[in-house]
Amino acid sequence: MSEATDFRNAMSLLTTAVNVVTTEGTAGMHGFTASAVCSVTDTPPTLLVCMNQTSRSHAHFVENKVLSVNVLSAQHEQISNAFASRLCSEERFKQGAWTQLTTGAPILEEALVSFDCEIEQIQTVGTHSVFMCRVVAIKHSEQEGGQEESLVYFNRAYHQVGQVEIV
C-alpha cells in the first residue's frame, strides 16, 4: 500500500462536516463539495479552505477572490452529490435555492450556516491550494425548533449528526 493510499484510508476515519463552497465574479459562478474546511481564528474571523489545483473550477476561485462556505444539513445529500459530480456549474446550481450576502458568492438559503468570505491568501501545499478566507458575513439557518442535523462524512459514507429537540 502506498503512503498516499494509507493516508487517505486513515483520513476517511476523520469525521468531517460536508460543505458546498461557491464563488461568483468575473470568472463566473462555480462550486464544489468540500470537507477540508476549518476555523483558523475568530479575530479576525477566518476560515481555511483546501482545493485541489486540478479541479476544473480552481482558476475561477483564484480569479474571483471570493467564496462562500455553505454547511450542509442532513437533507442536503443530493446537493453534496451534485457539487461533487461532473455536472456543469449551471446544472449544479439548479439544486437548492441560492441567494447572496456581501461578496456575491452564492449562499444556499437552507444551509445550516453560510460564511461569506474574501480570499486573502493562497498557499500551495502539494496538490492543493489552501485559501485563507476572511469572513465578511454570516447567515444562520432560519429553521425553528432546533430540528436540523448536520451532514457529515465518515468512512466514505454520509451520516447525520445532531440532536433533534422535541418541544
Rank of each mutant, 00 (worst) to 15 (best):
Q160C: 11
V62Y: 13
H60N: 12
P45M: 09
H58S: 13
S114I: 03
V18W: 03
G145L: 03
V21S: 00
S39G: 15
A34Q: 01
L101V: 13
E148M: 15
T16H: 04
Q100T: 14
D42V: 14
L47R: 02
I166E: 12
V135M: 00
F93G: 09
S12Q: 08
L108C: 00
L108P: 03
K65P: 03
V69R: 02
A137K: 07
N19W: 01
E144S: 09
M29H: 02
P106K: 03
T127S: 05
L87A: 05
T124R: 06
C117N: 01
A59P: 00
V167R: 14
A97F: 05
A157M: 11
A84S: 08
V152M: 07
H58T: 05
T102F: 13
F93N: 10
C38L: 10
Y153P: 11
C133H: 05
F115T: 06
R56Y: 05
Q53C: 01
I166C: 04
R156M: 09
R156S: 10
A34G: 05
F83R: 08
W98F: 15
E3C: 00
N9Y: 08
S80E: 10
R92V: 00
V130I: 13
F32Q: 04
I79L: 10
L14P: 01
V152Y: 07
S150A: 14
L112K: 07
Q53D: 03
S114A: 15
M1E: 06
L151H: 13
C117L: 01
Q100M: 02
V161H: 07
Q121M: 08
R8C: 11
A111M: 08
L47A: 02
K65A: 15
L67D: 00
F93Q: 13
S114M: 09
S12E: 10
C133D: 12
R134E: 11
H76D: 07
L101H: 14
R86L: 10
L108W: 03
L101C: 04
C117P: 01
I107P: 06
V152H: 03
I119A: 08
T26K: 13
N9A: 15
E90N: 12
L67N: 00
E3K: 04
A105K: 02
M51A: 08
R8W: 09
S55F: 04
A36H: 07
C117V: 02
M132T: 11
Q121T: 10
A105D: 04
S129W: 00
S114Y: 02
E90R: 12
T5E: 15
Q53Y: 00
T26N: 12
V152S: 04
V37N: 08
T33P: 02
Q95K: 14
A137N: 12
F7K: 07
G96E: 10
E148T: 13
M132W: 05
N52Y: 00
H58I: 02
V136T: 11
T33M: 11
S89I: 01
G25L: 01
G162N: 06
M132F: 10
G126R: 01
A84I: 02
H60F: 10
D6G: 04
A74F: 12
A4M: 13
L67M: 02
N70W: 09
T102G: 06
E118F: 14
F115Q: 07
E24N: 12
V130C: 05
G145E: 06
E118H: 15
E77W: 04
Q160N: 14
H76W: 05
E149I: 07
S39P: 08
I79R: 01
A34H: 01
E24K: 09
N81L: 09
R156N: 14
P44H: 15
V66Y: 00
S55Y: 08
E118I: 13
